[in-house]
């Protein structure tokens, strides 16, 4: 469906058979295509702009080695800068704190928080042998707590018993106590979805953080997100200080530019990728894979 950037750039450069250093004029021509490709991949406009500036600075005057065409050379520079911006390597969930280690999931409605919480719990239990408790603090979405309970049973991880009528903060306190008193290694706090401009709910999230004292705060976001990715990532980060990002629905056919936007605007690592509805569809983040996808290669 999408034409790869490398094909576009090589067709631009086809007319230029010159070798040697890339001229400013050539680079600017190529960067117009780069800008367009990034915008079509849903990278946020301001992020595209600073990205393109970085590539320009590196490309002008760069020596084109014999074995590659100027188009391939620009693609290589773009790819290098992309990978640098996305973060160099897989950054795992950090459990380096006194037990029970609290992990809090936050994000917009429907992003995949509850599903991802259960996937992470399964992974911590099976691959790292941790004793995990999950608690749903979502008292808003119909059957949200029930959803986490069902997933807990599916993956063989305990969930905090549901007590009707408690506030999210009360549940958080109860979960923290249960985690401590019952010898859990990790407590996962699933929270209700919230739009980042809903002041009451953003305040509630801050209070949940105070009550649960999380070691990791993971922003769960849809990899299909458009231009709004920068705003949502920045607002969540400003309010609670996220420690990492989980991108869901990478099993889709989206170009995933939101990854670049959110990483660039928060500086926080992308830790995990959700790649399906099933409980084992959780993958480590590898920047080169996302970079290729953004570039349509």
């Amino acid at each position: 469906m999408f034409e790869g950037l490398s094909e576009k750039l090589s067709s631009i450069f086809d007319s230029l058979t010159r070798r040697g250093a890339l001229s400013e004029e050539d680079v600017n021509l190529a960067l117009r295509e780069v800008r367009r490709a990034l915008l079509e991949a849903d990278v946020a406009l301001d992020v595209v702009r600073s990205f393109v500036d970085k590539v320009r600075a590196r490309a002008i005057g760069a020596n084109v080695v014999k074995s590659v065409t100027p188009g391939q050379m620009v693609v290589k520079i773009v790819n290098d800068v992309l990978i640098e911006t996305l973060g160099s390597d897989a950054d795992p969930i950090n459990l380096d704190a006194a037990a029970p280690v609290a992990i809090m999931m936050v994000g917009l409605q429907g992003a995949g928080k509850t599903t991802t919480a259960a996937k992470i719990a399964k992974r911590l239990k099976e691959q790292m042998g941790r004793k995990v408790l999950m608690a749903s603090l979502d008292v808003k979405r119909p059957a949200a707590q029930e959803q986490l309970a069902v997933l807990g049973r599916q993956v063989g991880v305990d969930t905090l018993p549901i007590v009707a009528g408690q506030t999210p903060v009360q549940i958080a306190v109860r979960a923290e106590q249960a985690g401590r008193l019952q010898g859990y290694d990790v407590v996962l706090f699933d929270t209700a979805g919230r739009t980042h401009i809903d002041e009451a709910l953003m305040q509630e999230m801050v209070e949940i953080k105070a009550a649960s004292r999380p070691h990791e705060i993971l922003l769960v976001a849809d990899s299909l997100t458009g231009q709004d990715a920068v705003h949502l990532a920045k607002n969540f980060d400003d309010r609670v200080g996220i420690t990492g990002i989980v991108l869901t629905r990478v099993d889709g056919d989206g170009r995933g530019g939101a990854a670049l936007s959110m990483r660039a605007v928060t500086g926080k690592p992308i830790k995990l990728l959700g790649s399906g509805e099933k409980m084992d569809a959780l993958e480590d983040f590898h920047p080169s894979r996302i970079a290729n996808r953004i570039l349509g290669m």
Partner: peptide, 10 residues
């Protein structure tokens, strides 16, 4: 979903 970008076309 309004937050989804260009993938809504597909």
């Amino acid at each position: 979903d309004a937050t989804v970008g260009q993938n809504a076309v597909s």
